[in-house]
């Protein structure tokens, strides 16, 4: 009796929070269209969208741009949120964010090479190049960890840091050799939604859906894996296949977001931990909710970045890192990690 009433209250609480999150997300979306360097009132936007949608005015072009940007932010946030859940479940490490694992820097290096040597410019090319880079970096990090005997939190993080430092040295070299690539790269590198384009979204959506399907398909297996690989095996889960698929989906999501927006750190970490705090650790549940929370965080960060300063907006990548780094420190303080 007590348990059932407890479950009922918990269920009520959780559905309440989901409702609240959806409302907040809607508000953030509206804010990201209304607010910016030039504030536009809701009334104007409504009349514009409903009655004058063929009109070519300054106002309508601003609104168009902002809507594209908002959609792009939602996609990126959701993708990074899901990627965070996948990476954390696969590595069974609560601190595994794609940015900490060096995956972003790997993608950066390949993108800067693409810009400098192959003159890449379209969204599709960015995505392919970044995906290869992310795969290489992830392969390196996991390879390093696999060479050792234990998979503990610190080895994974330091392997990520080492790989990331190596790639950033290489990035510096490429920039110094090819000065003209510097400008294109410098703005890409901070991670901003300002580069949103319809083309980018068109590339993003199918990749996002594909990876999401893979991730959802992996979720039960990942839940079983959380109990340990022996238990998972006895439950009939192919641990290697599930881990590989989940990893690939996570890398694809993170690489796409990185390719189109630039490296945005810590969204995966923030979204996953926030979701786990309220909804427990079941991957099936955390996966969609983390996407929701990721989208909410990224959109809000973008709005905040635009509102803070009149002259120059602060890129989302910077805001998420400023918020995410203290959270990482907080988590490290709470964690009972084994000493290296």
């Amino acid at each position: 009796m007590k348990i059932s009433s407890y479950l009922k209250t918990r269920w009520q609480l959780q559905s309440g929070v989901v409702f609240l999150l959806v409302i907040l997300l809607l508000l953030a979306c509206l804010a990201s269209v209304f607010w910016g360097v030039k504030d536009i009132s809701g009334h104007k936007i409504l009349t514009l969208l409903l009655f004058h949608h063929n009109e070519q005015s300054l106002l309508s072009s601003i609104v168009d741009k902002r809507i594209v940007r908002m959609a792009f932010g939602l996609l990126c946030g959701a993708a990074l949120g899901v990627a965070g859940v996948l990476m954390q479940s696969v590595t069974r490490n609560p601190l595994a964010d794609p940015s900490i694992l060096g995956i972003n820097t790997g993608a950066s290096f390949f993108v800067v090479c693409g810009i400098a040597f192959f003159k890449i410019s379209t969204a599709g090319q960015y995505v392919i190049v970044a995906f290869i880079g992310a795969l290489v970096a992830a392969g390196l990090v996991f390879g390093i960890v696999a060479l050792g005997k234990r998979l503990d939190a610190l080895t994974l993080l330091l392997a990520g840091t080492g790989v990331s430092m190596m790639f950033s040295s290489l990035v510096t070299i490429v920039i110094l050799v090819k000065q003209e690539a510097m400008d294109q790269f410098r703005f890409w590198q901070v991670g901003s939604l300002g580069s949103a384009s319809v083309m980018g979204i068109k590339v993003f959506v199918p990749l996002f859906l594909l990876s999401l399907i893979l991730a959802v398909a992996c979720a039960p297996g990942l839940d079983a894996l959380m109990l340990g690989s022996e238990v998972a095996q006895s439950l009939g889960v192919n641990a290697v296949l599930i881990s590989l698929t989940a990893c690939l989906a996570g890398i694809a999501l993170c690489a796409t977001a990185t390719a189109l927006a630039g490296p945005i750190a810590f969204i995966g970490l923030l979204a996953t931990h926030f979701t786990r705090l309220i909804f427990g650790s079941e991957v099936k549940k955390v996966l969609p909710l983390s996407a929701l929370v990721g989208a909410l965080f990224l959109t809000s960060a973008d709005v905040i970045g635009r509102l803070v300063s009149d002259t120059a907006e602060i890129s989302v990548g910077i805001i998420t890192a400023l918020v995410g780094a203290p959270v990482l420190i907080f988590l490290a303080r709470r964690m009972k990690v084994r000493a290296l």
């Binding site: 330091l158 810590f266 203290p326 990482l328």
Partner: peptide, 17 residues
């Protein structure tokens, strides 16, 4: 050290931002 290093990485990320 473990916690120290992770906190160091966090601080580093913050400064880099």
């Amino acid at each position: 050290t473990t916690r120290l290093v992770i906190i160091g990485l966090g601080l580093q990320a913050f400064y880099n931002a």
